[in-house]
């Protein structure tokens, strides 16, 4: 029968071993995987400003990016290639705030520089490789 001491050893031993494996994989992810997939060399001042604005206005509070955020507004990981920079510019500079199908986006008074920075941020995101996310739709009605 399992004793309390053995149970304690299982807990501490298991935790230490799996935490060590997790730390090893973290180091590899930070030094190999993430740089290969997300091109940190392309994060220039413009992309940094775009990212700053993304956080500052809590865009994740409505949208998702890399599938993370809230589910009230569209996924934006591939918005740059899906909609193009001109469309994004129109959305961000709508005089009364963007109002898609009766919903309201917050009206932001972005400067031209800020709008271009957000577009640059979306372009950087668009070029990241995310193991096939977002998936391509494949379901078609049968003939």
């Amino acid at each position: 029968m399992l004793t309390k001491r053995q149970a304690k050893t299982f807990f501490i031993g298991g935790t230490v071993v799996f935490a060590a494996i997790f730390l090893g994989l973290t180091i590899d992810t930070l030094s190999n995987g993430l740089p290969r997939n997300t091109h940190p060399e392309k994060i220039d001042d413009q992309v940094k400003l775009g990212r700053y604005l993304w956080d500052k206005h809590n865009c994740m509070g409505c949208h998702t990016i890399m599938g993370e955020g809230a589910y009230y507004a569209p996924e934006l990981t591939r918005v740059y290639s899906r909609k193009g920079p001109a469309y994004i510019r129109t959305v961000l500079t709508a005089p009364e705030g963007w109002q898609p199908r009766g919903r309201n986006m917050v009206k932001y008074d972005f400067t031209d520089e800020e709008v271009e920075a957000l577009i640059a941020f979306f372009k950087w995101m668009d070029e990241a490789y995310l193991n096939g996310f977002p998936p391509k739709p494949w379901l078609q009605p049968s003939e």
Binding site: L2, K4, A7, K8, F10, F11, G14, T15, F18, A19, I21, F22, L25, D28, T29, N32, G33, L34, R36, N37, T38, M66, G67, E68, A128, Y129, L130, N131, G132, F133
Partner: peptide, 25 residues
Amino acid sequence: YVIVGLTFLSGILGTGHHYYYTGGP
């Protein structure tokens, strides 16, 4: 002890399900 042991045994590396599609290998 057994239960919290099982929690960490699965939960620490289970963090990986957040790394599938967010730029990780």
